[in-house]
């Protein structure tokens, strides 16, 4: 989610011609008139704030996780219910990322390269999951597919299970992850315009050739970047999946739900062990993100 506040968009930098803010500040000798002391205090406050808010709790997760020793830590992760939770969480990511890749590219392509009626409506729909509380998203699926809901009786009669089963969990995950890839692509594709595609078409390329040889290479890094964020959200989501999960141990508990269950069972060390796995995932995501950002800059510099 931290990417949401990263403006200007790191991947659209070459197109807008701007540098990243930090390096710009370094090049201009003194952009502000504040004294060194004031600057240091401000930087100190900012760093202290993030240390207290992010770093210390993150370290605490690992400390708590290893409180009963490394063997207990490994044991908590190898326990069947924990393994099932890990597997289910990976399944969620493996569903959410490919689906959103296809949908995100299609939506961004349509929005950035074409004019059509209802375009702003589509943009609003893509943004909707950012605005709606995930709990509401879960409840909406209960209302639609629950036994007392609109489609529930029909589904039950045909033996189709949606909520309290894998499809419901996947739907809830998809709902909360919809914006991530599309939102990464739209500003970039809008900035790139349609010139290169038009040139390709004029030179005789087919639509698919244009897409695979011109459009896709241009958005490659933004796509990877969006997929990383989408993956992180899919694995970490709690609220929406909690409502549709049914909390069946070893069957419909994802990792975040399993953490809550272990905590409620006074099994604090095991809860933090599973939580530390999620935290590790966040760290991996951050590393991947900065690698992608650097690669993207390198690619554009050529």
């Amino acid at each position: 989610m931290e990417s949401q506040t990263l403006y200007p968009h790191p991947l659209s930098a070459p197109v807008t011609g701007g540098e990243r803010p930090q390096s710009a500040a370094r090049r201009v000798t003194s952009p502000t008139t504040e004294s060194a002391l004031v600057r240091r205090v401000l930087i100190g406050v900012a760093l202290g704030y993030f240390a207290a808010l992010v770093l210390v709790p993150l370290v605490a997760v690992f400390v708590e996780a290893l409180k009963k020793g490394f063997e207990f830590y490994v044991e908590s992760l190898r326990e069947p219910d924990a393994l099932e939770a890990i597997r289910l969480t990976l399944t969620m990511a493996l569903i959410a990322v490919p689906v959103n890749l296809v949908f995100g590219v299609a939506a961004a392509w349509a929005i950035a390269k074409f004019e059509f009626r209802g375009k702003s409506l589509l943009v609003s729909f893509i943004d909707l999951p950012f605005a709606v509380s995930p709990v509401i998203a879960g409840l909406v699926y209960v209302l639609m597919f629950g036994l007392q809901g609109w489609l529930g009786p029909w589904l039950a009669a045909h033996g189709i299970k949606i909520i309290f089963a894998l499809p419901g969990l996947a739907l809830a995950t998809l709902f909360v992850t919809v914006p991530y890839i599309a939102r990464e692509l739209i500003p970039l594709m809008e900035a790139q315009g349609t010139d290169e595609e038009e040139a390709a078409l004029v030179l005789g390329a087919s639509g698919w050739q244009t897409f695979f040889r011109v459009t896709l290479p241009n958005i490659k890094w933004a796509l990877v970047y969006g997929a990383i964020l989408c993956n992180a959200r899919a694995m970490g989501e709690f609220g929406a999946v909690s409502v549709v999960s049914g909390h069946i141990r070893g069957a419909t508990n994802t990792m975040p739900l399993h953490v809550e269950i272990l905590y409620n069972e006074y099994n604090f060390a095991a809860a933090f062990a599973v939580a530390s796995l999620l935290a590790l995932l966040a760290i991996v995501t951050l590393v991947l993100k900065s690698v992608v950002e650097r690669r993207a800059h390198g690619a554009h510099a050529r």
Partner: peptide, 20 residues
Amino acid sequence: IRASHGGSGSQARSVIDGLE
């Protein structure tokens, strides 16, 4: 035997909504 635990009222609600 699989188990699901939670507040009694909300568990009943889940069964009403189709938790099998």
